[in-house]
Structures are given as structure tokens and as C-alpha cells.
Design a protein around this nucleic acid. Structure first.
Lengths: 152, 152
DNA sequence: ATCCCAAATAATAATTATTATAAATTAAAA
DNA sequence: TTTTAATTTATAATAATTATTATTTGGGAT
């Protein structure tokens, strides 16, 4: 983990930003909860455990900065809040998500899967793709099984 | 257009909802501006031209109702507001979008393009896809051309 | 046609998410 | 260590959305 924080520190310095303790604490939370899709508020509460004096606005600023540097991606699953997701190391594109409309669980798909589609977009529409957001809404494995049992 | 309003009226009645003048005015705006991706506020201002007494909260309620009935889709392109997009008639899935990071223009892609990907998701991940959201971020044709001229 | 009542609306007010401001503090380069 | 631009805190402001409640109304039943 230290290694990744160091990398982020370098990325910040490269643009003459500082790695303050508040930013370090925020990044640590994101690393520790990499599987989750936390909102700013949730991140704020977790960061407070490490750095109780931190303010919510600072967390927002930090997340915005990390977004600009493409260290995190900001997503919105349709509830009113933005969620922040660490980009996989070395990933060119943002990964995809499977959101269960029953239980609300979110699964990540790291595989690209869109190479062919992006090619079509570029050739047929002349649109130069830089990034994407792909989310599937449906039923996760567990909820499908539950549904079968419940409605025989 | 009348035909489509009638269909929507029937869809409402099927769930014992009423087509009030306010709702009709809102639907008309959505039909007239089908190409756009209007926010609740923008819709509200346009509806006001037809029905000046309408309140913003009513527009929100109407849009939420139309969302539930899958008549419109609610999307978020990353700016702070939700946008509302009429579903194409008979469309099974939500259509895709090309958002230009330079000029902000939004183009619609009606073609499915995701059939293969959805098959993979269902077989490899066991996730039953009900709907999707796919947005590409990049440079539209025009902005690519402008970029070439500006940086020779 | 008119009566009735659940459904819907207007007119606030409240909440929630996010961003701005200004004065004080601090990371890190020289 | 000093310096300085970057950053933070604390607070306030703004923007988006939702809740509340008294009043009105669409449309089926009479």
C-alpha cells in the first residue's frame, strides 16, 4: 500500500500539489476500501477516524483533485450521490459495474469488453473515445436464486 | 404526437394514474425536445410556457412517475443535475450517449451494440441484465477538426 | 350531467449535496 | 530555517431535490 501512496505522492508533486496529511488519510481510506463505492460523506466519516479534524469540504476538494489526476473516477449510480472509485493501477479506461436492482450490490468488471464497440463508434460516428462509463442494471446471482425459491 | 400522448395516457391509466394537464404539458415538452437532454429545471421552464401555474415540485413528481413507468430515463452526465430522456418507442433498452468533453454536446446512439457484451455478462458472471447505461466521453467530430486547426 | 373521493397540485418549507470565501496554517523547495 | 504558494478550517452560500399540508380536480359511479 505504501508503494501506491508513494506513486500518488509523486503524481501530485508532478503537478506541484502537496501530499498533506488530510490527503494521505483520504487516499488510505480509498485504498483500504477499494472494493466499495463510497460517497463523499461515507469517505469523510472514515477519514475522520484517522484525522478527526478534517472538514467535509476538504474531502470534496481532495476527491475532485484525485479525479482530475485520474486517480479516482467519479460515478453516479442514479441515487443522488456521487461515488468515488479508485482506478486500477495502469488501467487505461474506467472499469464497468453490475448494479443489482434488488439488493443494491455493486460488482466490478475489469475486463475491457468494449474494444469492438469503441472501434465502431470511432469509425461510424467519427467520435474519438477518451473514456467510458458502462453500468448494467439487473439481478445478481444471489437475487436470482432467491427469486426462484420465492416464486415457485 | 397525439398518438404517443394517447399511448402514455393509457400506460398511466393502466396503473390508475391520471393524465392531468400538468402531466400532459410535461410530456409534450419532452416530445417536442426529444433530441435534447433536459434537466428538471429546464423542463420546468419550458412547461411553464404552456402551463404557467405549474410548480417545480410537480415537474419533479411527474418525471419520477414517468421514470417508474419506463417512459423516460433519468441520466447523469457528471454535472450535478439529472437529465431526462424519452425512451424510443418500443425500445427494450436505454440508448447510448456520446458526450464531448470539449463542447459538451450529446449525441444519441440508438443501435444496441451491447448484445455480445451482455451475453458475456450473463454467461461469465451469472448476472441477469435488465438494462444498461453506456456513455462515451471524448471528442466529437467538430471539436477534433477545431483541435487540428488550432494546434498545427 | 353531477357527485364523490382517491389522486394530484400549489405553495411553501425543509433537506441534502456540493461549492465558495476568507483568514489562518503548513508542506516542501531553496 | 525561512519563505511562499498551496492548503485547510470554519462558516456560509448555493443548487438540487424532496417533504408537508391544505386545497383542488380527473374521471368512474350514480
Amino acid at each position: 500500500m505504501e508503494h501506491r501512496i508513494d506513486r500518488i505522492k509523486k503524481q501530485l508533486h508532478a503537478q506541484s500539489y502537496k501530499l498533506t496529511p488530510q490527503r494521505a488519510a483520504t487516499v488510505k481510506v480509498l485504498l483500504e476500501r477499494e472494493e466499495d463505492h463510497l460517497s463523499a460523506e461515507e469517505i469523510y466519516l472514515l477519514v475522520k477516524e484517522k484525522a478527526p479534524e478534517i472538514g467535509l469540504a476538504t474531502v470534496y476538494r481532495t476527491l475532485e483533485l484525485l479525479s482530475e489526476l485520474k486517480i479516482v473516477d467519479k460515478i453516479n449510480f442514479g441515487d443522488g450521490v456521487s461515488r468515488y472509485d479508485l482506478r486500477k493501477e495502469g488501467a487505461e479506461h474506467f472499469h464497468h459495474h453490475l448494479v443489482c436492482i434488488e439488493c443494491g450490490s455493486v460488482e466490478e468488471i475489469v475486463e475491457d469488453l468494449l474494444e469492438d464497440v469503441e472501434k465502431i463508434i470511432e469509425t461510424d460516428w467519427g467520435f474519438q473515445v477518451k473514456d467510458h462509463r458502462l453500468t448494467f442494471h439487473g439481478l445478481c446471482k444471489q437475487c436470482q436464486e432467491t427469486a426462484v425459491k420465492t416464486t415457485p
